[in-house]
Nucleic acid binder design. Structure first.
Lengths: 355, 355
DNA sequence: GTGAAAGCGCTAACAT
DNA sequence: ATGTTAGCGCTTTCAC
């Protein structure tokens, strides 16, 4: 097990050039794979390079070319299976396109998000994918896109920001879910979201600036109203982010004087806590409480009963967002595109007719 | 909404220096936060910088300093909640230490892993965290560590590679899980792992080179043998990677002429498929089949019955591995450390006395 | 405390 | 096809 002698620096193009007896430019051409070199010289240089164990320095390359070959991704919470699937999709497409991804986790904190964006830019990423944590505060994103750095929004559209965006078909999905519930006779339906407003109360739909959530709530309310259900706005529960917060909110809701007979959860993490809360309180699903959740997390088929879900093709969402970004990086200049991938309501057994 | 005039390049230290009427070196000193500058000049430079909207170029900085402020992470599958939790831990600690993480997904493919490592090095990451996909093939890792680039192994130790490693207490965990089963009268216990051998058969424990898995199987076998159970090696099921593969393997196992009365799953993805297979075949857990799984995935509390698990502090695993790496980057030169974080067997209701 | 100048490893004109 | 020469934006001696 021999240790390489403490060589000061790593092998550079210049070293290879010298050893091969060619100019730096020629060596660089073959090592960098550009320009034209004779096969003979190419072979020679390549051989010398391997024998010297030459390793290209991407940093230096990026410096001169201006392209870093990386795309920056900032998500709210990589632990949320929604995001991990999306990130997998992004990473796969990125790799295929010759990019690597720098991942940052905002923890849904706007300051962390801003810092992340700043760092990512400083590292000269070729493009940015972000799922905005806060829909009130996106000057940093606006600035990014104005500065000419390609930016694609993941899952959460910002209507006032005209950039490429990939979301799921939120409004239709919410409408379907709500309609299923109403058809079964439910009239006290709660919609629980991690989204929040400044004062944690929802007086006006405009307070919800995150388009995905607003669309869902719009769909929810529209169907409720059409069914003659009053004040559906009050049925929206805000701020369910984090395990504890979800758990607390779920219990409070189910123990209230007028508990809902059905709940729509905005993601699988929320649904899980609702499920636990119901069980904890001795409530049966679906007899005492019907439940539908967004995101077809793998465990939703394995509970008793299995849960009716809005299936979102999350991996594909990630693939798409990455593909769009790479197109932009490669110079696409069309107007901002908004791609919405379709969802599908998978009916299982967590919804029953209202007692 | 005014668009900034197409300025060719971004603002550099030189621009700020010129505008502030100081030398490039001075401007660089305050902007880079090193050396000594008078408060007066510092204030002036800072002011000019913000008014010019100066953004440091980390790439250039890295070029000259040799430090990139990034750590490379390569995991098998970011969609696996085990890894997403670990990555979250890594990302959090990294951010705290002023590092950002470049994430790559090997898909448990050794060639992808090698490519990832190569790319990461080319990008001059300050250190590397990897969960090795293949325990036979790690020359690339050996080389990394020999070249002086800090490397820490995540969850999967490579005994023949002397580098910092963080794992869970695999052997003890497996022993406990097995003991619980045996105490309940089970003698036909299968252990299912994603790990694999060249010919997909397990004739010799030495064929399992991934230390974490080998330790688990060792623990499993030791307890089995002590209980007088013969040929426990045959009870180990290999190659359960990927949803379909897991499903197929699970069904085949449960439908075999001599199905096990209990199963230990090596991760929560496997357990989920076992659970589904059992349900699919009309087998009751725990009456017809007892189940214990590694990894306390959140859904394991919510099934009927809730599942007995080996709780692994995965987030902490990530934190620890990142902390170790950062220590190394900062110059720690002690011998390779192997930290094993303790696990805990959480008994729930998926294990019953053998009928 | 501040400035001048030399590089880091690479690519990109521009010659030859 | 190959060599020469500048830089990219920053840090870092080394003078002053």
């Amino acid at each position: 097990m021999e240790q390489p002698p403490m060589r000061k620096l790593s092998i550079t193009v210049a070293d290879v050039a010298r050893a091969a007896g060619v100019s730096k430019a020629t060596a660089a051409r073959v090592l960098g794979g550009y320009g034209t070199v004779s096969d003979k010289v190419r072979a020679l240089v390549l051989e010398t390079a391997t024998s010297l164990d030459y390793r290209p320095n991407e940093l230096a390359r990026s410096m001169t070319t201006g392209r870093s070959g990386t795309i920056g991704v900032v998500v709210g919470d990589i632990e949320n299976p929604f995001f991990s699937s999306a990130v997998r999709g992004i990473a796969d497409v990125a790799r295929m396109g010759g990019y690597t991804v720098i991942l940052t986790n905002s923890g849904e904190d706007i300051d962390a998000e801003k810092a992340a964006v700043k760092t990512l830019r400083a590292k000269r990423v070729d493009g940015l994918i972000v799922s905005a944590a806060n829909s009130y505060d996106f000057d940093h994103l606006q600035e990014i896109s104005q500065s000419g750095c390609p930016l694609v929004l993941l899952d959460r559209a910002l209507p006032s920001l005209s950039v490429d965006t990939v979301t799921t078909d939120d409004r239709a999905a919410a409408e379907q879910a709500t309609a299923v519930l109403i058809r079964k006779g439910h009239r006290d339906i709660a919609y629980i979201t991690a989204c929040d407003t400044k004062d944690h109360r929802l007086k006006d739909l405009d307070d919800i600036r995150t388009a995905s959530v607003r669309l869902r709530i719009e769909g929810f309310m529209a169907v409720c109203s059409a069914a003659g259900i009053s004040a559906p706005l009050d049925a929206v529960q805000l701020g369910a982010n984090g395990r504890d917060s979800c758990a607390k909110l779920s219990r409070a809701l189910l123990q209230s004087p007028t508990p809902p007979s059905a709940i729509i959860a905005s993601d699988s993490l929320i649904a899980l806590e609702v499920f636990k809360a119901a069980r904890h309180l001795g409530l049966s699903i679906p007899d005492d409480l019907s439940l539908i959740t967004f995101h077809d997390a793998d465990w939703t088929t394995v509970t008793s009963p299995p849960i009716t879900v809005v299936r979102q093709p999350v991996y594909q969402l990630g693939e798409t967002v990455a593909a769009l970004l790479i197109e932009r990086i490669n110079g696409a200049t069309d107007l901002a595109r908004h791609i919405v991938v379709p969802t599908e309501l998978i009916q299982r057994s967590s919804v029953s007719a209202k007692a």
